[in-house]
């Protein structure tokens, strides 16, 4: 059987490889090629070299503004999502009554699509702003920024919480018991045992929140759509607007998308390398 598998592995993997090529490799390579061309539809491209990459930065400051906005957003939301979800996970691993119900409730927002969420939160936030300040989300970019932070927190905290719960439940009770016998305070147990022990979960959660924050699109589109005046447009939305907002700029949008990919990939790799180092062998 072993021999059979090693000889005919391509038969078993062929369909998956074909699907992977059709759905990922080919579009990806085509996308990179298109970023060096001037095109209206993907079939009538003409080569222009690096022009699109130059234009991505020189046409206006949109891309850099979007990058800066995205970075600020990513920093704030990574910190807040991970702290809140870890706190919830700690709380819900304490064997309180109704823990399972709470876990389900916190997880549920994750099941709602981004566009719907965006519109729901737009209603809520506009309602509050109207009441408190007499304005709406389009009034200032800071409303849009914090609106997005609240929205993504609400959506992603439950998911990260599940991962942290799994991590915490994996900690050997012996360790905690031993620490308690040695007289460690709950605080010491948290910082010296629980957190080091869940570092693998932290790696995953930080990676997921980082990637999701950078790639955020639906929520951004539905909640603010860049208002006021594209000040709350994140990278993905800016790429979309560049592609469709102005004829002849499809290639520039594509170039921005390639830069975006490189950026996200680089940051994700660096982050993985750093947090992996903190993980301890079980």
């Amino acid at each position: 059987m072993q021999k059979f598998l090693s000889r005919y592995y391509f038969v078993f993997t062929a369909i998956t490889i074909a699907a992977f090529c059709i759905a990922f490799v080919i579009p990806f390579l085509a996308g990179i090629y298109l970023s060096f061309t001037n095109f209206t539809t993907v079939t009538n491209a003409s080569w222009v070299g690096l022009e699109n990459y130059v234009k991505a930065f020189t046409t206006n400051a949109d891309f850099l503004n979007a990058l800066w906005f995205t970075v600020k957003f990513a920093v704030v939301s990574i910190i807040s999502i991970n702290i809140i979800s870890f706190a919830l996970a700690l709380l819900l691993t304490n064997n309180y009554r109704g823990t399972n119900a709470f876990r389900t409730v916190f997880f549920m927002p994750n099941l709602i699509g981004g566009i719907v969420l965006g519109y729901i939160w737009q209603l809520i936030i506009n309602g509050i702003l109207l009441h408190v300040a007499g304005v709406d989300l389009t009034y200032s970019a800071k409303y849009g920024f914090w609106g997005l932070v609240v929205l993504t927190n609400w959506q992603m905290v439950g998911y990260m919480m599940i991962i942290y719960i799994a991590g915490i439940q994996n900690i050997s009770p012996d360790l905690i018991e031993a620490a308690e016998i040695d007289g460690a305070s709950p605080r010491q147990i948290l910082f010296n045992i629980k957190i080091p022990q869940v570092m693998p979960s932290v790696t995953i959660c930080v990676f997921l929140t980082l990637a999701n924050s950078f790639k955020l699109f639906d929520q951004n589109l539905a909640l603010t759509n860049g208002a006021p005046n594209r000040e709350t447009a994140m990278l993905a939305l800016d790429i979309y607007n560049t592609f469709y907002g102005r004829m002849g700029y499809e290639g520039v949008g594509q170039a921005k998308a390639v830069i975006f990919f490189i950026l996200v990939a680089a940051i994700a790799f660096i982050q993985l390398a750093i947090t992996r180092k903190k993980e301890i062998e079980n």
Binding site: V135, T138, Y139, A227, P228, R246, M247
Partner: peptide, 20 residues
């Protein structure tokens, strides 16, 4: 000239209406 132009002008009109 383009949709971007119209959108930018629209955003400016909104800011004007809001008194900004």
């Amino acid at each position: 000239p383009s949709q971007v132009f119209k959108n930018d002008f629209g955003a400016a009109l909104l800011s004007y209406a809001q008194g900004q």
